[in-house]
Design a protein around this nucleic acid. Structure first.
Lengths: 304, 304
DNA sequence: GGCATTCTGAAAGTAAGTTTCATCCGTGGC
DNA sequence: GCCACGGATGAAACTTACTTTCAGAATGCC
């Protein structure tokens, strides 16, 4: 499950600290002292010489070497570089307060930027990690085969829905987005077998979207839900469920990371669909790009 | 200039490779051979002993030491652990082909997901890194003080514009978004001193948006451009320029990373504005959240 | 062509890491 | 209570890695 590359990466340069903590109880007392120092501050340990570390752990160099062997390293220099690598890999967020996601009252702009971008990037990465390619594949197949694609979403998710609709439209797929609940229901009622309805709701509790999906499903259309919560109500009316992994802080911050996560999923589906028929999608994109060409000014700067 | 945190981070554990490449031409021939090996594969270099590396570079250990000093390191062990740290820090993309950003013809869904999320996350992070908090601050000030906020954007940037408009509206600021160019021009003509117009264009060449900003500026409004290209035409009609850092591959892939980067900037501005008047913004968000409450179903699952 | 300067590696020297081994200490058997 | 045993430990010997010194080679400048 997309983990092949990850596993090797893990093997290469992460997990040592975890590994050591796990081994800790089984080590001899003197080695434990060394281990505790290493776990407490890997980066610092990496900076020390073996003599230095031995002294700090109130033991001899020999014990440090033994410790290296105990945790599976060849020797001290090897341990050192592994520790340095691991310490570096722990991406420390720009600010401790940044992780939680809620912005402290006294925050300045630099801090706000750091917080938001950190959380946004995380949401994108984590969403991708937990996304099931097999489900995506099936959804892509369904979209590709569909006579018509309806995308639903309200408020912030509405923008995402409409973005997807526009993208599909640009590569020549028949897609609709209805900002109005009545029109959406009407449209859903006209769907049938072989059509597909995609409902987007961060919380998975937006009744309008659920209702529309239900309608679509009743008419025989394939239904897809895109939500952050895999056990939310919307998943009950969906044939396929795609989830985002945005740890949206409080509702107070409004939909931020969730949108980005949703858009990432949308992009994956879009590219998947486009890849199904490269030639056609490409041609369509070229034609549409040409169409807006007159609305672009040349980048040659005029004198002020 | 946003660099305070960055500088220290750079100082600590990144940029060495870049630093070395920069220094490369100024090094002596033998040192250059060493440098090239190091830059080509830092992780590998970190694994070698000084003798090993010297041999590989067809030189003596002494030269390697000189090289260490030349790049500002104390000695070889120090260089080693720094290299190990840096190599680890470079988040290696799931697949080499993933970096470019264009999806290879035979790609499967897992690969598409990896590629897109990688590029999206990068765009977000890099945008944040190069964003100037000082300029953001001024824009936030302008929005806070503005009597009216107009946000313009076409196609994909239109969604972003409309998202921003909706967000500002939710916290009680008077904001507009016009999907129609005529209405946008009309609206811009009615702006005046103390109002603010924000134009979003990834390429910075969308004539409609430029035109509207120009109009707004002529009427005395403050103008802000959000674009990926700091020297594009749109920047000429803007008092403040905010840039994204999305290396959007080809037009073929459609706007993907660029939107996310734009949204990140928007979120920063939004939070900045909201933070100016926490109490009011919070109250407004609560009220609006309550308003849609009847449209949420409880998460209690009914039996199927 | 001579001189200064920089570059370079051999060799010597120093520090770091590794192995060996004697000692210590606790455990269990008698 | 004594002794044998085995693991844990550090001192010391040893090896390897790293650093410095220095003299010769190469380069460039009068």
């Amino acid at each position: 499950m997309a983990k092949t590359t990850k596993v090797s990466a893990t093997h290469e340069s992460s997990g040592l600290i975890v590994h050591i903590s796990g081994l800790l109880p089984s080590l001899s007392p003197a080695e434990q002292r060394v281990a505790r120092l290493v776990v407490a501050d890997p980066a610092d340990a990496a900076r020390r010489t073996i003599t230095d570390l031995a002294t700090a752990a109130e033991t001899s160099e020999a014990t440090v070497i033994r410790f290296c062997r105990s945790v599976g390293m060849e020797g001290y220099p090897q341990l050192r570089i592994r520790l340095a690598a691991e310490a570096a890999r722990r991406i420390e967020p720009p600010d401790a307060r940044v992780v939680g996601g809620d912005i402290p009252p006294g925050a300045d702009l630099a801090q706000i930027i750091a917080t938001i971008s950190f959380n946004d990037a995380r949401a994108v990465e984590e969403t991708a990690e937990q996304l099931d390619p097999a489900v995506c594949e099936q959804v892509v197949d369904a979209i590709t085969a569909a006579g018509r694609v309806d995308v639903y979403g309200a408020a912030a998710s509405g923008f995402v829905a409409s973005d997807f609709q526009q993208k599909l439209h640009r590569i020549g797929r028949t897609a609709f987005y209805w900002p109005d609940i009545h029109m959406a229901l009407t449209s859903a009622a006209l769907l049938g077998k072989g059509d597909i309805a995609i409902g987007i709701s961060h919380t998975g509790t937006t009744s309008d979207v659920i209702e529309v999906l239900q309608q679509a499903r009743a008419r025989g259309a394939t239904t897809v839900a895109l939500t952050n919560f895999p056990r939310s109500p919307i998943t009950e009316v969906a044939d396929f469920v795609l989830t985002t992994a945005a740890r949206e802080t409080t509702y107070r911050s409004g939909a931020m990371a969730s949108r980005l996560a949703q858009l990432t999923v949308i992009d994956c589906l879009f590219v998947g669909v486009a890849a199904r028929n490269r030639a056609k999608a490409r041609r369509a994109l070229e034609v549409t790009a040409e169409a807006v060409q007159p609305h672009r000014v040349t980048s040659a700067r005029r004198s002020r």
